[in-house]
Design a protein around this nucleic acid. Structure first.
Length: 375
RNA sequence: GCGGCGUUGGUGAAGUGGUUAACACGCUGGUUUGUGGCACCAGUAUGCAUGAGUUCGAUCCUCAUACGCCGCC
């Protein structure tokens, strides 16, 4: 089967919504946070640890898997789920985001046919098209495939963005036309920067193509301001169907997840929890903390007193600091486990807040705690 | 006791008679939003063993003292 979204409860004061997604691997509630497992692994974590965090869908990346180990090998292994031992739903990003960060000359390398760029591994010349991206995703057999879109920087001009939006719509159609995996859902991506008319154009035209879900892309990159990010959501959501899931790509920070939910977004993904973990930083209810800081040297309490994650149940800040300072890999692992659980727990709490029509109160309390000075 | 060499920040060290004493590590803080994993950015010696002298000016030259290493008695 393909993915099926059901709206269970619309919050009364905002666009926030509580729903469920039925997938090949069970039913999951939204709002939801998807841990990122780019190269068929959530960095540092076993699939058991990912599940212990109560994760639903996880994200893998077409570009990275295409280069290594290759789609054919994953097919031989019996598909991505068997290959990485994850019997939960997997979404594959199309590779658009990666590819455009590797493009050298925008005018020359981005053509109607596809995108020319160089491998980040050996510099060899590669060419990715909307069709090829979908074919790779069909082959690795993820549960949700993403259309191949252009992801321009936030600083792009209106004229550039307009052409980009139109091209992304044409690419979405081409990808859909070759999509052939019966059990795999396919999502369309809305672009258009922070411009209202471009988001409307992108959303309405993409919806006409009838995808299984829709994502809002081109957000949270290139030092984009939060205001522009929120605009991009506000200008996209009204044109998306109510009975399809909405996915905000690459977000993010706790406050951005909250703002996204309030604006009607259902699912999120972000590298932040695992990346900051590798650099020694943990999310907490009272803001981010850097375990490198000297003040944690003799702090024998958990990262968060009331956190239910494995790390908080077992280890102290002083110990994690010691691991991080000495570049011991367990440190990054423990922080990754906590940070992923933190964001998933945030979405669990947002669901409860929506059910009680208290999403704005939840946000106010969160801001007070997270950005307050009384730590 | 005599002779030689050395003494620069938390550490290893570069360096010059003249505005802000290199670099590395460490340390202190920060950044990170569809991941080119363990990165990047910033700060970190009002002072160059101590005292005296030469000089317009000394960390750099001279002398003495202390300490360290090596050799000789």
């Amino acid at each position: 089967m393909k993915i099926k979204y059901t709206l269970l409860k619309q919050e009364e004061n905002t666009k926030a919504r509580y729903g469920k997604i039925e997938t090949n691997y069970g039913t999951f509630e939204t709002p939801m946070f998807m841990p990122v497992g780019t190269k068929a692994t959530v960095k540092g974590l076993s699939v058991e640890e990912v599940k212990d965090a109560n994760a639903g869908i996880i994200l893998a990346n077409t570009y990275h898997l295409w280069l290594r180990p290759g789609a054919d090998l994953i097919e031989k292994a019996g598909g991505l789920h068997k290959f990485m031992n994850y019997d939960g739903p997997i979404l594959t990003d199309s590779g658009g985001f990666q590819v455009f960060s590797l493009v050298k000359n925008k005018k020359k390398d981005i053509t109607e046919e596809g995108v020319h760029f160089k491998s980040h591994i050996d510099g060899s010349k590669l060419f990715l098209t909307p069709e090829l991206s979908i074919q790779i995703q069909n082959k690795v057999d993820s549960d949700i495939a993403m259309s191949f879109d252009e992801c321009p920087p936030a600083s792009a001009s209106y004229e550039y963005l307009k052409n980009s939006v139109l091209r992304t719509i044409r690419w979405a159609k081409r990808g859909k036309d070759v999509h052939s995996n019966e059990r795999q859902a396919l999502f369309g991506i809305v672009q258009g920067g922070a411009y209202q008319d471009l988001r409307k154009l992108s959303a309405t035209e993409t919806v006409k193509l009838d995808f299984d879900g829709y994502s809002i892309g081109g957000v949270a990159n290139d030092n984009e301001s939060k205001e522009d990010m929120y605009k991009a959501i506000d200008y996209s959501v009204p044109y998306l169907p109510e009975d399809k899931v909405r996915y905000l790509m690459g977000v993010g920070e706790p406050i951005d997840i909250i703002e996204g939910v309030i604006r009607g977004v259902d699912i999120f993904d972000c590298v932040l929890p695992t990346r900051i973990a590798r650099h020694g930083v943990a999310f907490t209810r009272y803001g981010k903390i850097n375990l490198n800081n000297a003040k944690f040297k003799e702090d024998f309490t958990p990262l968060e007193d009331d956190c239910d994650c494995y790390t908080c149940k077992s280890y102290t800040k002083a110990y994690i600091r010691h691991l991080i300072r000495n570049n011991e890999m367990l440190g990054a692992r423990l922080l990754s486990i906590h940070n992923i659980r933190f964001l998933i727990r945030l979405t669990e709490e947002l669901r409860e807040a929506i059910k009680e029509n208290k999403i704005l109160e939840y946000k106010a309390k969160f801001i007070e705690d997270y950005y307050g000075k009384n730590k």
